[in-house]
Design a protein around this nucleic acid. Structure first.
Lengths: 238, 238
DNA sequence: TTTTGTTGATTGGTCAGTCAATCAAAAATA
DNA sequence: TATTTTTGATTGACTGACCAATCAACAAAA
């Protein structure tokens, strides 16, 4: 029972938070959504805070597994960059309730050290995924800059969705981020290993032979637990 | 007394929200910060929600006035673009408490229709400020895209600050956004009016003779009240 | 009979909002 | 000028609602 109930409660929490658009939901709301009594939620999680922590953990886990799947198919660094982008705007992540939930956790991170750690992990991972592949195409300092820029743009597009005015749409968001990458890959100095077609207008040059930082998606998989004792997730909102 | 108290309470609210990193602050907190009793806050604002609305209104007003000042000095479209960017990352706006407050309002916007309207106005204004000057340098469709991208990048950089991990810094944020503009101005088709130096590597070509959409900062000043009955602000976070 | 799952009822605390009362300064009146 | 009245500013005390957390008890499985 325990694992099922925990999952049901975490899912319910995510749902309720997404609908309500805020972490200011009651244990009763969550429990009702899960079809159990509020007391049971406390029984399994001890406190509301703990349930919320598990909820964001689950959000990050989902994101990471999407990323792993997307990266498995990608071969070249440039393909992997596109995969990272695509995952960030994957339909599941783009659902209004999901966006609202992420936003709520972002706000919460201002107050909860633990929540902030989770989001920092997310941010670092998005950055590092981008950086690893960019380094195969560009000198380190340029790669660093572009990784920051791309991550910021992803987060910005994501958050802009939350306003629901003039929704930009999944495809357009991906295109915008790809444009950024293409334009900056074209502008910046050529690849450190092989300068072949980086400057091509379409920006989609294949540079697959460039040694990929580590094993397959090495920087993405478990790898982890450096400065925090939590699961390593993958890239989306901030 | 009334105007002074109102201002003091709004300022106090901003301060408390920023410190606390959330809208979940009590009227007592705010009133204490302002040095008055909680009852007085209710007396002047009627409800907490109303006080919060006034608070975000004040945030937007501040942003707008900064923008007006910055744009006054800018002459060419390209200069104005830089001014818009600079204002978005102006030190005041980049203070952790201010960022936390913006974030809190973003989250609130998921639940409060009125709050959302304010943020939509902000977003539209940022977009339109960028668009107006981009149109002087690029065909409309390209300008549109780049305005979306730049706005997203600004918001993304801004929100990333809120995590306080690996802070990117004001200068670097500006540079990153400028890089984006420069790179995309270089990539995209030349200006519709005069194709002179748009493609130059430094990206800082002057195209001042291109008719600026309307009067001086016409799209920024009052102009307004199309779909919402609130003051027109200027560009920062989302 | 122990263990696990589950809940209703309760408690303690917090908070927005109300209200009647106090105080002071300005306005009106004598 | 002196006195009364009015008006606005301000607050302490209170209320009603909500909610996280607890706990004792009940039920079912092992």
């Amino acid at each position: 029972m325990e694992p099922m109930r925990r999952k049901a409660l975490v899912d319910a929490a995510l749902r309720v938070i997404g609908d309500h658009g805020s972490l200011a939901v009651t244990m009763s709301d969550i429990a009702r959504q899960a079809g159990v009594s509020p007391a049971l939620a406390h029984h399994y999680f001890g406190s509301k805070e703990q349930l919320l922590i598990e909820t964001i953990r689950s959000l990050l886990r989902q994101l990471r597994s999407d990323a792993v799947a997307a990266l498995r198919a990608a071969k070249t660094p440039r393909e992997r960059l596109s995969a990272v982008i695509r995952v960030s705007f994957h339909a599941d992540q783009f659902a209004p309730e999901t966006i609202a939930a992420w936003l709520a956790f972002y706000a919460e991170a201002q107050r909860s050290e633990e929540t902030r750690r989770f989001l920092v992990v997310y941010a670092r991972r998005l950055h590092s995924n981008l950086l690893a592949d960019l380094k195969a195409l560009l000198p380190t300092d340029a790669a660093e800059r572009i990784a920051e820029g791309a991550a910021a743009m992803i987060d910005g597009l994501y958050i802009r969705q939350s306003l629901k005015s003039a929704p930009i749409g999944i495809e357009a968001s991906i295109a915008l981020t790809e444009d950024y990458l293409n334009a900056l890959l074209a502008t910046a100095p050529p690849s450190p290993q092989r300068g072949e077609d980086v400057r091509r207008t379409d920006g989609w040059g294949k540079a697959e032979t460039a040694a990929p930082s580590s094993g397959p998606a090495g920087h993405l998989l478990p790898e982890g637990r450096r400065d925090n004792h939590i699961e390593p997730p993958k890239g989306q909102m901030t």
